[in-house]
């Protein structure tokens, strides 16, 4: 039997606590730590004061393709890639730190974080196994979450060319988009050429 290091376990508990504080689902903790289900359950109740949500994790890649989620997911993934390049971290720590920076950035702009930490974790997994990728926008050059078969030459992101119904929702903390956005980007583009 493998010798269990107390130090390693302490690190894992600390990690799990951070994830619970960020609102992670139990499945994330199970997959990212070696702690037993029972201990995780107890930890979850102790930290959050309630039982974890039950049921399946969202498993579809489609959510990431809708307008607003795509913007949030792209911001997170860009931060994640940045940390991946410059810092040497365990995979889950990169997700945690990138997610914290994402929350900060979104909060600073007065928006609601649409991307949950569970979804963020899921997104990284989708990218790892090639179900999703990042494609540079032909217009602004920014990298956005897309399906892997996106033709890079033709790809334009949802911020350069928002879809017709984008930004019409009245949800609090949602992105609002009115006439003029196209012009703003247009102006920005015009100065480039």
């Amino acid at each position: 039997m493998r010798q269990k290091s107390i130090l390693t376990e302490a690190r894992q508990i600390e990690r799990a606590v951070t994830l619970i504080h960020l609102g992670a689902r139990l499945q994330v903790l199970e997959s990212e730590t070696d702690l037993s289900y029972e201990r995780l359950l107890r930890l979850y109740k102790e930290v959050s004061g309630r039982s974890p949500s039950k049921g399946q994790l969202p498993f579809s890649t489609d959510w990431f393709m809708t307008w607003q989620p795509n913007i949030h997911a792209s911001l997170f993934l860009n931060i994640h890639e940045y940390l991946n390049k410059v810092a040497e971290l365990d995979e889950i720590d990169t997700v945690i730190k990138a997610y914290q920076l994402y929350l900060e950035q979104i909060g600073a702009q007065g928006l609601e974080p649409l991307l949950s930490v569970t979804r963020a974790w899921r997104l990284v997994k989708f990218v790892d196994n090639g179900m999703l990728t990042m494609t540079p926008c032909r217009k602004c050059g920014g990298h956005f979450v897309t399906h892997p078969h996106e033709i890079a030459r033709n790809y334009v992101c949802g911020l350069c060319e928002p879809p017709a119904r984008a930004g019409k929702g009245r949800m609090a903390g949602a992105l609002q988009l009115r006439q003029g956005q196209d012009e703003a980007v247009g102006r920005a583009m015009a100065t480039l050429s």
Partner: peptide, 20 residues
Amino acid sequence: GAANDGVARLHASILMAGRH
């Protein structure tokens, strides 16, 4: 365009975060 401020700033954030 005050209404689109959020979108523009978010766009800028994404572009800047992409520069490692």
